[in-house]
Design a protein around this nucleic acid. Structure first.
Lengths: 115, 115
DNA sequence: ATATATCGTTTCGTATCCGTTATATTCTAG
DNA sequence: CTAGAATATAACGGATACGAAACGATATAT
């Protein structure tokens, strides 16, 4: 992957977007994708408050994103035993797999776009 | 931009997603983004039927995407004079600008991710 | 202990979106 | 010129998202 120009980058973005649309799982909103990626890329622990602050969105956005992605098994919730007001967001096997596939998708398309 | 690994690609995806969320304009759905990019990256002419076929979605999805993005001035519609059943989708200045900024966004973040 | 602050969720009203199906318009074949 | 096909859109019903505000539960401070 060397030196993708603007056109190639946009092509890449489209290819990946299209792939996400065609995937059987309902596509995540941009907000949800941001939340999911942050949970998996940034070091834990993750709280609702913390995620909302980091992503500059309101707390209900996080709660609802966790609801949706929890149903999809992409993340899990657990109460913080230290401070029971907090919710600790946890990664899951399915979530890791999902992002692994996403990375592979992007990677493959970035190769392809160069041809 | 050389050799982005999986983690870096995902970081890039998150950064751009976050930027899109924070942008004042309401964020497009993944479907809408696919449509918009196809209109600007593939050679014209573009019709509703053609876009639906190319993206493997139903025609109403395209119609509605054009409604929304038309309101946002990102695309324009015009009847095909040759065959008045067809709608020709046209690019706009605002749309070009939007994608130019998106490309720049992706490009900048791809630099940053390497640091 | 009691008031206050913090945290996550719920609720409310609004605005989309999606897929399916039905419809109006336009073209084409016979 | 009329029956049928093709095109885009509208209408319907269900699902979901959003922001703002209100709410319970828990912790903290005085």
């Amino acid at each position: 992957m060397t030196e993708l120009n603007s056109g190639q980058l946009l092509n890449l973005w489209r290819d990946v977007s299209m792939a996400l649309v065609h995937d059987e799982s309902p596509d995540l909103t941009t907000r949800q994708m941001s939340v999911l990626l942050t949970i998996y890329l940034d070091p834990p622990p993750h709280t609702v408050r913390g995620l909302a602050a980091k992503l500059h969105v309101t707390k209900p956005v996080i709660t609802r994103a966790l609801d949706t992605m929890g149903r999809m098994k992409l993340v899990a919730r657990r109460r913080d035993p230290e401070d029971r007001r907090n919710v600790i967001v946890q990664r899951t096997v399915d979530g890791s797999l999902y992002l692994e596939k996403l990375a592979e998708l992007i990677s493959n398309f970035s190769q392809e776009v160069l041809k």
